[in-house]
Design a protein around this nucleic acid. Structure first.
Length: 963
RNA sequence: GCGGAGGUCGCCAAGCCUGGUCAAAGGCGCGAGGCUCAGGACCUCGUCCCGUAGGGGUUCGUGGGUUCAAAUCCCACCCUCCGCACCA
């Protein structure tokens, strides 16, 4: 009994140890076998590997194990990512004593206090997690060749030589250029502020604001706007009377803008010389000249104007901007304010909104309409945001300019906008500034702004040639699931030049800029090639100083003469040639799997860089992506406590149960959902498989049941085919479920059906089952396999052959299943719980003959049905023939092909024979006597009496009489 | 806004490409029975509504359409989720 206990932890450790000892997953080139190189994007070592990572990894592991069994020489290496600012960011936060960070480390990651103290050193942190994660991954049991492991950044000299080479190649081939690049910038830290470094304003990025210059004497009042086309509706210009403004030379022209704007302009590569500062109130009452119309409009005070947004100057279009409308209304009714600024009440009150756009929904004066609809009271009402967005959306998409817009009259708003921008650019009345549409605050508490970095090195993703090459590679590649392909096309086309250098965090220095680092997405694009080299660095054969540009040129691109390079690098040309040989054997990557989130960045970069550096035959072959793991229906979120590390899962559920819980959770791009309850139940499922397999074979006193053995063999063949096909198409959930449940059900049915199972057949079936289970639950399968007395490792045992399935026995079983179902339905309808006798009356011979012929007919029409039936129904009463035709016409036309096949087969063998053979089983099933009769055997009169109003007996559908 | 995925019988989730045993797999939950000293273990049956004979009725986001036949194909609409750059 002890032996039937499923101790997953013991079993898993046992086999992991065995695989390691036997170096099962350590792969070397073998010319006699086709190779299959699989990779996984190295995880970032800022925390424990979690179940989301495990999900994708498990999918890859399944394929790796499957391919090995299909005779491929599989290479599955692994590495760890250290590059970037996140690790340094955590260290920073700990140094600052950030409680939230410390709490998460302690509670979610289970890091001891004294270790957290040491995390102030980012390198220590990265090492800590690398150690922890390596152990967790090993305990999870993956088919990884660990000899090739490495981590990134300059802290790994070997890896850095490779990245160095990569960037020298990119530079040499013209994929790197210099340019300018706007970023969200913290003036205090003097560095770009990414989402993770922000206290608020996540997801905000620079947007283009248009500047419109209003002449004020020799100077210009420069207003910022998203809607330059509305300049035809200007009635006045707003300033905040309390704010500080400045007059300055901007690129030689005199501008008046808020004081803060000067800094922004300077950050955006404008030459700015301040002349003087002034209060907003000084501007109030002045008159400025509008752009196209040349009208003079007043400058008026408004409290809603924020000097830190845009330029601190807003031009007023009351007809189309709810804010302007409200501010104007407020002013008209505020005597004291008018007096304070010495404004003429009459003049102000005579200002009328100028309509210049119309939409079906809001007409030509939308501000007033929307403000009333929303019940907005004054310019400080927060609902004005909503009002603005309603009007903006409607007018932008469906608006048309009215005929007071000069050359831009009667145009769709979108078109008018383009033309106005172009015109203002030409005549100098307009300009642009990049701005953050909502405030961004750096972790250090400083308000961020946009900065244009000059002299940036950029990856020239905007290059049409590069894009074309990437698209070509994509076309040649297999993408799973196929829906994801469109995503790749979209992102390849969408990318513009990418700034790849950083001044902070960990990484490999830019070869020609030693004080700058290559950022995290850019140093991890072709590193899979380095797995070939890393093995030799790890075992000491190669030293980082050997890994020169010439070295990689030869090994990876076949450039240069080995003997000459030997002199330069100090590496023997023999070793070189060996490495080149290995590289050519393994590369390219046959399959890379990741979460779908990486389509937008990493995987697209992966394609871009491969086509840039490598010749066509080394381009990636297949990419598979999958959804994002959710925990109990929620997206993973460490700070909300929604997080399960791989380590935790292994400890609670073990590797195999964790694996199938993940694998069964989703297919394609869907987000898999982890349910802990399911995982627990899966342990039970595996335990029951464990017990079943062992007990199946124990109690076997062998008996031949011919039909059922045929059935089992063929049903399993069908499963093998299904699992294999699903795996080939990366439909891993389908494969998992078929391998586990499908075969389990087959075996159950077989055992239910026969009184004495056939030992040989059963054993064969069980072995096939274990073979199919291996990619999904390797440890359990291997354990049972060895318990069955097999000496060869299941890991190395060939996958079952996909052979032709003989459907005949399956069709006959289907017939029996239907019959049993019918019987249960009758029991249910009559409310009977037990019966003493079941009489099965099968259809008369002439019906069978007629049916056989009719089934084969493509068209079932009353005329030909009658004709066929008449042919066989000699001596049968007209009434009976009529009833039978009626039934045929009702059922046959809507019969599926599958069911027709069932019938055809059943009639061929004969219902009587099938039922006789199954009698014992039926008697067991219904716990009653079973009698099989032929319709002809019963005298007509008696038959009519017992059949009553029941429909006529139909071939394949016998009459069931229960007593 | 742009791009992608999706809405199925209490819940989770197949099916949809290739229309017809689809009232719709499987799991959970729930109910009945068996096995058992007992059971959260295992086995069998049931679980939209009606029905004392295998039948009928109404279902697959909503509304149309194509078809002898639609969860499945077409059109429109509503709703949900995910990604959108210096960030891994």
């Amino acid at each position: 009994m002890e032996e039937l206990k499923y101790d997953f932890s013991k079993i898993e450790k046992k086999w992991q140890k065995k695989y390691e000892e036997l170096k099962v997953f350590e792969s070397e080139p073998d010319p006699s076998k086709p190779k299959f190189f699989v990779t996984f994007p190295f995880p970032y070592m800022s925390g424990p590997v979690h179940l989301g990572t495990a999900y994708t990894l498990t999918r890859l592991d399944v394929i790796a194990r499957y391919k090995r069994k299909r005779g491929f020489n599989v290479l599955f290496p692994f590495a760890f990512h250290w590059t970037g600012t996140t690790i340094a960011g955590i260290s920073d936060r700990i140094r600052r004593g950030d409680q939230k960070t410390i709490e998460i480390l302690e509670k979610m990651d289970g890091v001891p206090r004294d270790e957290i103290e040491r995390f102030k050193d980012p390198v220590y942190l990265a090492r800590y997690y690398t150690e922890k994660n390596r152990t967790a991954l090993k305990d999870y049991g993956l088919a990884i060749d660990w000899r090739r492991e490495f981590h990134t950044t300059s802290l790994n000299a070997g890896f850095s030589t490779f990245v160095r080479w990569q960037y020298l190649k990119l530079l040499e081939k013209g994929y790197i250029k210099k340019g300018v690049h706007p970023v969200v910038w913290c003036p205090r830290d003097k560095s770009p502020t990414g989402d993770h470094d922000r206290l608020s304003g996540e997801g905000v990025f620079p947007e283009k604001f248009y500047l419109v210059k209003f002449r004020l004497e020799e100077s210009h009042l420069v207003a910022a706007t998203f809607r330059p086309e509305t300049v035809f509706g200007v009635t006045n210009v707003w300033v905040n009377p309390e704010a500080t403004y400045a007059e300055a030379y901007v690129d030689g022209e005199k501008w008046i803008v808020s004081l803060e704007t000067l800094e922004k302009l300077a950050d955006q590569l404008r030459s700015v010389t301040k002349i003087r500062e002034l209060k907003g109130r000084e501007l109030v009452g002045k008159r400025v000249t509008t752009v196209f119309t040349g009208v003079k409009v007043p400058v008026l005070p408004a409290s809603f104007v924020d000097p830190s947004i845009g330029t601190g100057i807003v031009y007023s279009v009351p007809a189309h901007a709810p804010y302007d409308y409200m501010a104007l209304e407020d002013l008209k009714h505020d005597e004291s304010l008018l007096r304070e600024y010495g404004l003429d009440p009459e003049e102000i009150r005579s200002i009328k909104p100028i309509s210049m756009i119309t939409t079906e929904k809001y007409g030509s004066n939308p501000s007033e309409k929307v403000v009333k609809e929303l019940g907005i009271k004054d310019q400080s009402d927060p609902k004005l945001e909503e009002a603005t967005s309603l009007v903006y959306k409607e007018e932008f998409h469906k608006g048309v300019t009215l005929d007071n817009c000069g050359r831009f009259s009667n145009l769709p708003v979108q078109r008018a906008k383009e033309l106005v921008i172009e015109e203002m650019k030409n005549n100098g009345a307009g300009d642009e500034i990049l701005e953050l549409p909502s405030p961004v605050v750096c972790r250090c508490g400083t308000r961020c702004r946009v900065k244009i970095l000059s002299d940036q090195y950029l990856l020239a993703y905007s290059s049409p040639e590069w894009k074309a090459k990437a698209l070509k590679a994509l076309e040649m590649m297999k993408i799973y699931p196929k829906e994801a392909r469109e995503n790749f096309v979209y992102f390849i086309n969408w990318y513009v030049d990418w700034a790849f250098t950083r001044t902070s965090g960990l990484g490999t220095p830019v070869p020609w800029l030693p004080d700058q680092m290559i950022e995290t997405l850019s140093d991890s694009t072709v590193y899979m090639a380095y797995y070939i080299v890393s093995k030799y660095v790890n075992n000491g054969t190669l030293k980082p100083e050997n890994l020169t540009e010439e070295f990689y040129d030869y090994v990876m691109l076949g450039k240069g003469v080995p003997e000459e390079i030997e002199k330069k690098t100090g590496v023997s040309s023999e070793l070189f040639k060996k490495l080149k040989h290995e590289f050519d054997y393994w590369y390219p990557v046959d399959l890379r799997i990741s979460g779908k989130d990486l389509i937008a960045n990493h995987l697209t970069f992966y394609i871009f860089h491969h086509v840039a550096i490598f010749p066509e035959e080394k381009w990636p072959r297949q990419i598979a992506v999958n959804g994002f793991l959710r925990i109990e229906g929620q997206p993973m979120h460490k700070s909300k406590g929604i997080f399960i590390s791989l380590r935790d899962a292994i400890e609670k559920y073990g590797s195999d149960a964790t694996r199938i819980t993940l694998l069964l959770a989703a297919e394609g791009l869907e987000d898999p959902n982890w349910e802990s309850e399911k995982a627990s139940r899966n342990i039970e499922l595996l335990a029951s498989i464990y017990r079943q397999v062992l007990s199946f074979l124990e109690e076997c006193s062998s008996g031949e049941n011919s039909h059922m053995e045929e059935w089992l063999r063929n049903s399993i063949r069908k499963r093998v085919k299904k699992v294999t096909e699903a795996l080939e198409e990366m439909e891993i959930r389908e494969a998992t479920s078929e391998a586990i449940y499908g075969l389990r059900n087959d075996l159950r049915w077989y055992l239910r059906r026969v009184s004495k199972p056939d030992y040989k057949t059963l054993r064969e079936a069980v072995e096939t089952w274990l073979n199919l289970l291996y990619p999904f639950t390797p440890h359990l399968a291997e354990e049972l396999w060895s318990k069955l007395g097999n000496n060869v490792l299941l890991a190395n045992y060939p996958w079952p052959q996909v052979v032709e399935v003989d459907e005949k026995p399956l069709l006959i079983e289907k017939y029996l299943e239907n019959l049993i179902e019918d019987a249960y339905q009758i029991l249910k309808a009559t409310g009977k719980t037990s019966i003493t006798r079941l009489k099965i009356v099968i259809a008369a011979g002439w019906k069978n003959e007629a049916f056989k012929e009719l089934i084969r007919k493509a068209k079932i029409e009353p005329a030909n049905v009658r004709e066929v039936i008449d042919l066989y129904a000699s001596g049968v009463s007209r009434e009976e023939i009529g009833r039978f035709i009626g039934q045929v016409m009702k059922n046959l036309p809507s019969m599926s092909r599958e069911y027709k096949a069932v019938l055809e087969r059943v009639l061929e063998v004969g219902e009587h024979k099938i039922l006789s053979e199954a009698r014992e089983f039926l008697e067991k099933e219904f716990k009653c006597d079973v009698e099989i009769l032929d319709e002809n055997e019963i005298p007509r009169e008696e038959f009519n009496k017992i059949a009553g109003k029941k429909p006529p007996v139909q071939p394949g559908r016998p009459l069931l009489l229960m007593e």
